[in-house]
């Protein structure tokens, strides 16, 4: 049984904790041992969020060691860069093409890095980089908040777990009336991974 260590990062309010919960539940249902832990700032919204999810035959620490994550899933580009040092050599980076300037940038105290800087940093770390248009697609589907299911769809593309199990676990966590929209986002994420240039 191959181990996978995931670092999922973004901004409070993007639904990262729910996505990482579902990922953990899917993996458990598929027979993996699972540990996951989220680091949140003090408040509910707006701060940098990182979620560690580890699946494998037997998992000890819930925290992943820097430089050893197999898959980095970034819901926002600056956050991708912030946590890039967790990626293992030749690990896979899935980066959502969303720019959300933090307060210090809006106030003119600091500068948001350019797309080239971000990409070049990742190119030095790995060849496996997927830049995907999750936020754009989520808004097209009808609600920016389904981004987390889009990102789960992307992750599912890389794992040897069949899509049916993902949908089953999702249905247990998402209210029925918004389930369809979320499953659409999941499908779109899966599709985009198959087509995006890396």
């Amino acid at each position: 049984m191959k181990k996978y260590d995931f670092i999922m990062v973004g901004i409070g309010g993007q639904g990262i904790v729910l996505a990482s919960d579902i990922l953990g539940e899917v993996a458990m249902s598929a027979g993996y041992d699972v540990k996951k832990t989220d680091t949140l700032g003090m408040a509910q919204r707006g701060g940098s969020v990182v979620s560690h999810v580890r699946i494998g035959e037997r998992v000890w620490s819930p925290l992943i060691k820097q430089g050893t994550a197999d898959i980095l899933v970034a819901f926002e580009k600056l956050e991708a860069l912030r946590w890039s040092h967790y990626l293992s050599p030749d690990g896979t980076a899935i980066i959502n093409d969303q720019t959300t300037p933090p307060l210090s940038v809006s106030l003119g105290v600091s500068r948001y890095p350019g797309d080239d800087e971000i990409l070049n940093t990742f190119k030095k770390l790995t060849r496996n980089i997927y830049v995907i248009k999750g936020t754009k697609t989520a808004i097209e589907i009808g609600d920016a908040r389904v981004l987390n299911m889009f990102m789960l769809g992307c992750i599912s593309y890389l794992l040897p777990i069949e899509p049916g199990l993902w949908k089953e676990c999702t249905a247990q966590r998402i209210p029925a009336k918004i389930l369809e929209m979320n499953l659409t986002a999941f499908e779109k994420g899966r599709e985009e991974m198959a087509h995006v240039d890396i």
Partner: peptide, 17 residues
């Protein structure tokens, strides 16, 4: 790999919503 976090990135502390 032994690299630390990148220096000089704009921080994103928790904020009032």
């Amino acid at each position: 790999r032994k690299i630390g976090p990148l220096a000089g990135l704009p921080p994103r502390p928790p904020v009032l919503c």
